[in-house]
Design a protein around this nucleic acid. Structure first.
Length: 566
RNA sequence: UGGGGCGUCGCCAAGUUGGCAAGGCACAGGAUUUUGGUUCCUGCAUUCGAAGGUUCGAAUCCUUCCGCCCCAGCCA
């Protein structure tokens, strides 16, 4: 919304598309596709791809298809299909009515294969998986031809039909493209097109027992849908010659495959394997654990789709492997939330504060601004009484230099209320502070225009008698190192898991207006950060808030670096 | 030692016909502030992986070298 007034810097994909539009290669059309395999949850890395795929189509007045790459029946499930569609819509993109499944093309793919066989460009191979690997050669040496490579088209046609008919056991035969066993590009050494898998497919059931490989299915699916630009990640660069070969042999519509670097983030793991490990080993509570980089996790954490899209815009599109600082993601989040999150006061670690000269039993309703960034957000009333809770960290008996908060003899303003002066503390037998005492200055009431006195610090508070008890979950990075894979020999990324990535506070006290907070609503807890009422566990009886991200904390930085010492 | 890519500020990333290094994040100062928040100023690559060369002039052209990533699934 605020980035419409500057011209987005170009990137190489946009340049290529513009060039195609100039030359008329695709008649000015831009049709892309996002092709997830339904075998896992979408994560922030997919969000980048989604923003590029849908974004390019949108920008050039085209469209983007959602196509599930469901060519492997043993790994894929309907549950993931539903979750993926939900996540993409949440992110803010719509494919309707262009929803497709590679499995919808199985029949046509089969016909294409027959076409290649007839042209002498594909053959049925009886080699086992191991034998196939043996003959493939190595990175530096070419492979050797299979003894079945030169079967006649008629024999291949017969065998292929019988493969489909289920006459042969799993793994006993494959259909291979006849390209070049000596190619320096391994993908061209007679790649497998079909394998036999007598498995039930989540959509086609038991109709098929041969399933196409990715390379064979993908390009042809693109072609069938009239895709113009097939955008994918860098590891498919080596596959492009094969992508092109199939299309050229078939003589059908030929999209342009373009590869870009996938996203990596500091303090984050992104691979499906590692994400699965986190879930299965119980390091997190599930795919939607607020610490997970999955869209489901980020959503539950309180991230907004707008922030994620803005982030994807800012990281750019290029071909170099890179790892983006997660601080940029958090910056985008704060920028978005700052504009829209209503402010409230919440005391996370309560410390009782008694105002000695404030009448017992008196309740004042004070006016508080809902969002200083948004005048439209209006104001609300907050009850003020003699006994309040303040944040433990807002009081120090023995304060460091530059500490602007409460300490014996010091004055601070209570947000939207009065200036108070600390008169002392009450301790228990263990010497622990259980109560802070103070007096207030009635002439300093907020909003009266009389508050001439200035103090350095303002702290938040909540009326003890009116406070809403709540549980608050403080989340931190899941890993202690920017690169979770930075481990010693023999160790794996789990040694870098942050044992303190979740801290649960069960005695929090929120201002009364939060009693009506509905699941999924976001707030700024003033001076703390942004929080969201948990969509799974929060209820009116037992409010639960997740910390989405902290506010920038200059004081914490000063204290940490010892700059408060001098 | 085969093939495909990539190397511009701590992290991303512009730089397209050679003309003399955008922007964002981070960081550091300062101003404003009833959130040590926000906002606003200021600073932050004589240098573009390295070395040669061409040129009046090169991050951009040529040569050589160095480093990093990907590929030997009947996964995608």
């Amino acid at each position: 919304m605020n980035n419409t007034d500057f011209t987005k810097p170009s990137h190489f994909i946009r340049d290529i598309i513009e060039e195609h539009n100039r030359s008329g290669r695709f008649g000015g059309k831009v049709i892309t596709r996002f092709p997830p395999e339904p075998n896992g949850y979408l994560h922030i890395g997919h969000a980048k791809a989604i923003c590029i795929d849908f974004g390019m189509a949108q920008e050039f007045g085209g469209r983007c298809h959602l196509r599930f790459d469901d060519t492997n029946p043993t790994k894929e499930e309907q549950e993931y299909v539903d979750a993926i569609m939900n996540d993409i819509r949440w992110l803010g993109f719509e494919w309707d009515p262009h929803l497709y499944f590679a499995s919808d093309y199985f029949e046509r793919l089969y016909d294409f294969a027959v076409q290649l066989i007839k042209a002498g460009k594909a053959y049925v191979d009886d080699l086992s998986a191991d034998e196939t690997r043996e003959l493939r050669g190595t990175l530096t040496e070419g492979g050797k031809a299979s003894p079945y490579r030169n079967r006649s088209a008629a024999e291949n046609l017969d065998l292929f039909a019988r493969m489909r008919a289920g006459e042969f056991p799993d793994g006993s035969r494959t259909l291979r493209a006849k390209i070049d066993m000596a190619s320096p590009n391994l993908n061209l050494r007679d790649p497998v097109m079909y394998r036999i898998r007598k498995a039930e497919h989540h959509r086609t059931g038991n109709k098929w027992c041969i399933y196409p490989m990715y390379d064979w299915a993908h390009g042809q699916s693109d072609s069938i849908e009239g895709i113009t630009h097939s955008l994918c990640s860098l590891e498919y660069e080596d596959h492009r010659p094969l992508y092109d070969w199939y299309l050229d042999q078939l003589g059908i519509h030929h999209p342009q495959q373009i590869e870009f670097a996938r996203l990596n983030l500091t303090y984050t793991v992104m691979s499906k394997r590692r994400l699965l490990t986190l879930v299965e080993k119980g390091y997190v509570s599930g795919w939607d654990d607020p610490r997970m980089p999955t869209l489901a996790g980020l959503r539950r954490r309180g991230y907004t789709p707008e922030a994620i899209r803005d982030f994807c815009d800012r990281i750019g599109v290029a071909k170099s492997n890179s790892t983006v600082d997660i601080a940029l993601l958090e910056h985008c989040l704060r920028e978005d939330l700052n504009k829209r999150a209503p402010r409230v006061m919440a005391v996370l670690r309560p410390l009782k504060l008694v105002i000695e000269n404030y009448p017992e039993g008196q309740v004042e309703e004070l006016e508080a601004v809902n969002n200083p960034e948004d005048p439209q957000a209006g104001t609300r009333q907050v009850p003020f009484t003699r006994e309040l809770y303040i944040e433990q960290e807002d009081f120090r008996e023995d304060p460091p230099k530059k500490y602007f908060r409460l300490f014996p003899g010091n004055e601070v303003r209570l947000r939207y209320a009065y200036i108070i002066k600390c008169t002392g503390v009450v301790k228990n037998q263990n010497g622990e502070i259980v109560e802070v005492r103070c007096t207030y200055d009635p002439a300093t009431k907020s909003g009266t225009g009389q508050e001439s006195k200035k103090v350095k610090g303002t702290i938040h508070w909540v009326s003890a008698a009116h406070a809403v008890p709540a549980e608050v979950r403080l989340y931190d990075y899941l890993f202690t190192k920017p690169n979770p894979d930075d481990v010693a020999e023999g160790e794996d990324f789990s040694v870098n898991i942050n044992p303190n990535s979740l801290e649960t506070l069960r005695a929090c006290r929120l201002e009364p207006s939060l009693a009506s907070a509905t699941a999924g609503s976001r707030y700024q807890f003033e001076r703390h950060g942004y929080f969201i009422a948990d969509t799974k566990d929060s209820s009116t009886e037992h409010p639960v808030f997740n910390r989405t991200v902290t506010l920038r904390d200059t004081w914490a930085k000063i204290e940490k670096t010892g700059r408060s010492e001098k």
